[in-house]
């Protein structure tokens, strides 16, 4: 109580503003989801006007949806991790390593039906290793996963050297990109199903609710007998499996594995989750926000290509959006602490 009212510096005024009267429209405006929808509308409008009709084409929309799906599946897993107060910065290399393992098995002539589960299992195993180091070794998540980011990448290199794998089954592309269910390519359908499933899991399942409880107050969660360590470990493992699936979908989009596959991928995923309003300190957030965050990240990238802006701007734009959205949110919350 007292310590939360205590703040550590001259920025105190924000903490001591007058009590705010909750007004319905203000509450709605203040919601992260509303802001994200606004950004989406804005970007779509801009790109519709600025890209000379390039946006509303079948090819572009399909490509955009597949790209979003590839981010969305790992982002769904990342939401669970961040909800419980963790983070995983290693998933870019994890995606590369899973792709390398799967790719080599394809090259060795394994049937697709046998390799697909390997993708998921290998991802889950790598996530499990992160969980082991973080939860049994008590290594802070960011330190551990920065380390495994380079360790997994080393693994990719050891398996691949500087070779490329292109001999991948065409079925992947057909299934994830070419086949459609209604207007949606296969990858998008799968991503939506997974997000919906995890959203339902978070909303109605005991374990999902317990993840929120851990993020809210880890100490209290332990006291009421929630197996904190096991559940947090589980989130890293689920994230790993999601990354495995993401790797598979990515091979459908661009059927090539090389040493650099997936490098930088983690940034887009973390950006999507954080943009979606899941708080790094844990306990608040959810899958719908992550869904919208993924759309924003995908749209920004697509708009930059379509509008012939230098691709380097994507980093600047994304970085600024992250800072702005989290900064505004934290400021708003600081004021709420008072009332």
């Amino acid at each position: 109580m007292k310590s939360s009212a205590l703040n550590l510096g001259p920025a105190a005024p924000a903490l001591h503003g007058p009590r705010r009267v909750p007004v319905a429209w203000r509450a709605l405006l203040a919601r992260r989801e509303t802001a994200l929808l606004g950004v989406i509308v804005l970007v779509v409008t801009a790109v519709s006007l600025g890209a000379h009709g390039g946006f509303w084409t079948r090819v572009n929309l399909d490509g955009l949806m597949v790209t979003c799906a590839i981010t969305a599946v790992p982002a769904a897993g990342m939401t669970l991790v961040i909800l419980t107060g963790g983070i995983d910065a290693s998933i870019g290399s994890m995606l590369g390593l899973v792709s390398a393992i799967g790719g080599l098995l394809f090259v060795a002539g394994w049937p697709v039906a046998a390799v697909v589960p390997v993708f998921l299992l290998a991802g889950a195993a790598l996530g499990w290793i992160n969980g082991l180091i973080i939860l049994c070794g008590r290594v802070p998540p960011i330190v551990c996963t920065l380390g495994t980011l380079s360790i997994f990448r080393m693994g990719v290199f050891l398996m691949m050297g500087s070779e490329w794998i292109t001999a991948l089954p065409p079925g992947l592309t057909r299934f994830f990109v070419a086949d459609h269910l209604g207007p949606l390519p296969g990858a998008a359908v799968i991503a939506l199903v997974i997000m919906a499933a995890l959203a339902a899991f978070l909303r109605v399942h005991r374990t999902g609710r317990r993840l929120f409880a851990i993020g809210n107050n880890e100490e209290a969660a332990r006291l009421v007998g929630i197996p904190v360590r096991r559940l947090r470990w589980m989130t890293y493992t689920i994230l790993g499996a999601c990354v495995g699936l993401g790797a598979l979908m990515r091979l459908g989009q661009s059927p090539i594995v090389q040493t650099t596959t997936g490098s930088g991928f983690e940034l887009g995923v973390i950006a999507a989750v954080v943009l979606g309003g899941t708080e790094l300190s844990g306990g608040r957030g959810g899958m719908f926000g992550t869904f919208l965050g993924t759309l924003v990240v995908g749209l920004v990238g697509d708009a930059i290509v379509l509008m012939h802006i230098q691709p380097f701007w994507s980093g600047v734009v994304l970085g600024s959006i992250i800072l702005a959205s989290v900064g505004l949110n934290e400021g708003r919350r600081a004021r709420q602490v008072v009332s």
């Binding site: 600047v316 992250i322 800072l323 989290v326 400021g331």
Partner: peptide
């Protein structure tokens, strides 16, 4: 702005590299 250090420096990392 009270942004957690990991997120803040991740964001500026994006931005500075882009610039």
């Amino acid at each position: 702005f009270r942004i957690p250090p990991i997120i803040a420096t991740l964001g500026t990392m994006f931005a500075f590299t882009g610039l």
